[in-house]
Design a protein around this nucleic acid. Structure first.
Length: 571
RNA sequence: CGGGGCAUGGCGCAGUCUGGUAGCGCAUCUGCUUUGGGAGCAGAGGGUCGCAGGUUCGAAUCCUGCUGCCCCGACCA
C-alpha cells in the first residue's frame, strides 16, 4: 500500500474521549472512528489487523474440525421466548418490531438460532459430535460501553457451538476448543492465561476464560507458581490458615474509639495490625433481614463467594444504614459480631482463626479488644468469603498465588442441556431412543482481541504490534524522495520486490519530513522499518530497525529482500 | 441505572464568572524556502458556539427544558 494514496490522517493529539491506551492509540493511528457510543467504524489500517485476527481464528477452528456458518443478526422473538431468555435477558437485549408488528431482536449471541438449526437438521447420533462456528457482528446494549472497542455495543465475535450425545463427548469437544484457543492466542503473539471462571447466569458446569495479560485489564486473575492452577479472582479459593487458632491470652475489653470508623483508622489509632482486627459487613439476607459477614481487616469480601452462601441474597447487596441500625443498634463503623443475636454470623476461614482480635462493639465510638470466638461470642459458621491475596497458598496444593490483571478475550463453556432441553433438540441414539443433546459454547471477542493486543503491546510512542497481527509487516520510509531520484527509484523498486515476495509493505511515499514519517510509523506500530536515504545509498546501504529496537543498523541494498525476509518472524 | 464531568471549525483548547465584532495551536488548501526525528514564512478556506424555548436593544456567555458524549460503580467477548 502506498501511504500517499490513503486519505485518513493520524492525530498528534488524543481526542478527549479516550482514556485507556488502546482506545487513544486506535484513534490516533486511525484504526477506528466513533459513530455513536460503543459503535465504531473500522478504517483500513484497523481492518487489516482485524482480518488477520479473524484469519488465525478461522484456521484454528477449521483445524479443530469445526464448520463455519453465518447466522443472521436479526432473530425472531419466538426463539427467545422458547428458550426463556426473552424474559431473562433484560434491557441489554435490543428488541424491535417490524412493519407487521412482529417482534425481533438483534442477536447478542446465537444459542437459540444454532439450536433451532440443529434440531431441524440433525436426527441421528451418527451426525454427532459436531461444532458450528461463525465470525459475526453482535449487538449488546451495554449499560456502559467504554474504552473504545474494548467494550463496544456492536462488536465482532467468533462464537462456536458444539453438540454431543453425552457428557463424555462434551468434555472432549470442550477440551479440543480449549486447545484451539490456546493455539490461536499463541499464534497471535499474545501473552495469556486460561483461568477457571464462574459460569454465572449462562449456567453449565465447567467454564474457563482466556485472559490477555495487561496491567490495565479489568479482571483480576490468580495463578500458582507451583503448577498450572489459574483462576479468576472471583473463583480462587482461599484455603483455611494452616496453623490452628492460637489460645486466648487476653480478656475482652471495650475501648473508646471516637470517630474511628474504618479498619485503617482503627489500626492506626490502636496500633494493632489490620490483620488482627475483624471487620463485620452486614448484607441483605435471602429472605429479608441481614447476615453478618466477618473478615480479617486486611482482607476483602468476595461478592461471588458470598452470594452463593445459603441465606445470603443473590446478587449480593450491602444492608442499608437503616437496616444496620435496626440489627445492631449502632451505625456502620462500629459493627461487630459480639452480641449480634438477631442475625446469622458467618466468618471467613481466616477471620475464624483469629484470637484476641479487635472488632466493633455495636456502640458508637467504641470497639472491643481481646475478643475470642467460643468464649466471648458463639463459634461462627465458617466459609470462604474473601478474595485471595498474593502469597496465599494455591488451592491446588502446590505453590503460592500471584495476582495479575487480564482482559477477557475468550470464554469456553460446557452448557449441558439448558438450551437443547428448552428447545427440544434431540436425536435418536444407538437404541433408537430420543436423546436430548449436550451442548458447549465457545466465544472470542474478535474486536476486543485487537484492543487487548494494543493494551499489552505499546509504549509512549505508539502501538507495537505482535508481528502475526500487524496491519503491515514492513514500513518503507524514503527520505527526501521529492528531491532524490535515486531514493525514489530505490524505494519504488524495493516496494515492488517485497510485495512480489509476498511481504506486506506500507510505502510511506507521502511528501512529509522524516520526523513525521518516523513518528507515524511508530504510532502505527509496524514491526519492521526500512529507511531509504541518500546518506545510506551513497555507501550502497539501507537502514533497518525493529519497532522494539533502540537503534538502527545498516544493511546492503544488494540482497535487500533476502535480508528483510530474514528479519521477519517465521510463518 | 446511581454518582461525577464535558459539549465552541476535522482534532486539542481559550472565551462563559462580569452579555457587546467568535479566537488560539494542530490539521487542510496555495506559493516560496526547507528536508535524517512531528519545518519556516506569507496568504486562504472552514464554526447556525449540541438542540429547543425564555430574559434582553443585544446571548457562546444569564434562566428553563431536552439531547449527546466521557469517567467511576454492579454486568460481559
Amino acid at each position: 500500500m502506498r501511504w500517499s494514496r490513503y486519505p485518513l490522517n493520524t492525530m498528534k493529539e488524543t481526542p478527549a474521549e479516550a482514556e485507556v491506551a488502546s482506545h487513544r492509540l486506535m484513534l490516533r493511528a486511525g484504526l477506528i472512528r466513533r459513530l455513536a457510543a460503543g459503535i465504531y467504524t473500522w478504517t483500513t489500517f484497523g481492518l487489516l489487523t482485524l482480518r488477520k485476527v479473524e484469519a488465525i481464528i478461522r484456521e484454528e477452528m477449521d483445524r479443530a474440525g469445526a464448520f463455519e456458518v453465518l447466522m443472521p443478526a436479526v432473530q425472531p422473538a419466538e426463539l427467545w421466548q422458547e428458550s426463556g431468555r426473552w424474559q431473562e435477558y433484560g434491557p441489554e437485549l435490543l428488541r424491535f418490531t417490524d412493519r407487521g408488528d412482529r417482534e425481533f431482536v438483534i442477536g447478542p449471541t446465537h444459542e437459540e438460532v444454532i439450536t433451532d438449526l440443529v434440531r431441524r437438521e440433525l436426527q441421528s447420533y451418527r451426525q454427532l459430535p459436531v461444532n458450528f462456528y461463525q465470525i459475526q457482528t453482535k449487538f449488546r446494549d451495554e449499560i456502559r460501553p467504554r474504552f473504545g472497542v474494548m467494550r463496544g455495543r456492536e462488536f465482532i465475535m467468533k462464537d462456536a457451538y458444539s453438540f454431543h450425545l453425552d457428557e463424555a463427548s462434551l468434555r472432549e469437544g470442550y477440551a479440543a476448543m480449549r486447545e484451539a484457543y490456546a493455539r490461536m492466542f499463541t499464534r497471535m503473539g499474545l501473552r495469556f492465561r486460561a483461568v477457571r471462571a464462574d459460569s454465572g447466569a449462562i449456567g453449565g458446569t465447567a467454564s474457563e476464560e482466556f485472559q490477555v495479560l495487561a496491567d490495565s485489564g479489568e479482571d483480576a486473575i490468580v495463578f500458582s507458581d507451583g503448577d498450572e492452577y489459574a483462576a479468576n479472582l472471583e473463583m480462587a479459593e482461599a484455603l483455611a490458615p494452616a496453623a490452628p487458632r492460637p489460645v486466648a491470652r487476653t480478656t475482652m475489653q471495650p475501648v473508646a474509639t471516637p470517630g474511628v470508623r474504618t479498619i485503617e483508622a482503627l489500626s492506626g489509632f490502636l496500633g494493632t495490625p489490620a490483620a488482627q482486627c475483624a471487620k463485620t459487613l452486614l448484607v441483605e439476607g435471602a429472605n429479608g433481614g441481614v447476615v453478618a459477614l466477618v473478615l480479617r481487616g486486611d482482607h476483602e469480601l468476595n461478592a461471588v463467594k458470598a452470594q452463593k452462601i445459603a441465606g445470603v441474597a443473590s446478587p449480593l447487596r450491602m444492608a442499608s444504614a437503616e437496616a444496620v441500625r435496626a440489627a445492631t443498634g449502632t451505625e456502620p463503623g462500629y459493627v461487630g459480631p459480639v452480641g449480634l443475636a438477631g442475625c446469622p454470623v458467618i466468618a471467613d476461614r481466616s477471620a475464624a482463626t483469629l484470637a484476641d482480635f479487635v472488632c466493633g462493639a455495636n456502640a458508637r465510638d467504641t470497639h472491643l479488644t481481646g475478643v475470642n470466638w467460643g468464649r466471648d461470642l458463639p463459634e461462627p459458621q465458617v466459609a470462604d468469603l474473601r478474595n485471595v491475596v498474593a502469597g496465599d497458598p494455591s488451592p491446588s496444593g502446590k505453590g503460592r498465588l500471584s495476582i495479575a490483571r487480564g482482559i477477557e478475550v475468550g470464554h469456553v463453556f460446557q452448557l449441558g442441556r439448558k438450551y437443547s432441553e428448552a428447545m427440544n433438540a434431540a436425536v435418536l441414539d444407538e437404541e433408537s431412543r430420543s436423546t436430548t443433546l449436550y451442548m458447549g459454547c465457545y466465544g472470542i471477542g474478535v474486536t476486543r482481541v485487537v484492543a487487548a493486543a494494543i493494551e499489552q503491546n505499546h509504549d509512549e510512542r505508539g502501538i507495537i504490534w505482535p508481528e502475526p497481527i500487524a496491519p503491515f509487516q514492513v514500513v518503507l520510509v524514503p527520505i527526501n524522495l521529492a528531491k532524490s531520484q535515486r531514493v525514489r527509484e530505490t524505494a519504488d523498486r524495493l516496494y515492488d520486490e517485497l510485495t512480489r515476495a509476498g511481504i506486506e509493505v506500507l510505502l510511506d511515499d507521502r511528501d512529509a519530513r522524516p520526523g513525521a514519517k518516523f513518528a507515524d510509523a511508530e504510532l502505527l506500530g509496524i514491526p519492521h522499518r526500512v529507511v531509504v536515504g541518500e546518506r545510506g545509498l551513497e555507501a550502497g546501504n539501507l537502514e533497518y530497525r525493529h519497532r522494539r529496537a533502540e537503534a538502527s543498523e545498516d544493511f546492503a541494498l544488494e540482497g535487500a529482500v533476502a535480508f528483510i525476509r530474514s528479519r521477519l518472524a517465521p510463518g
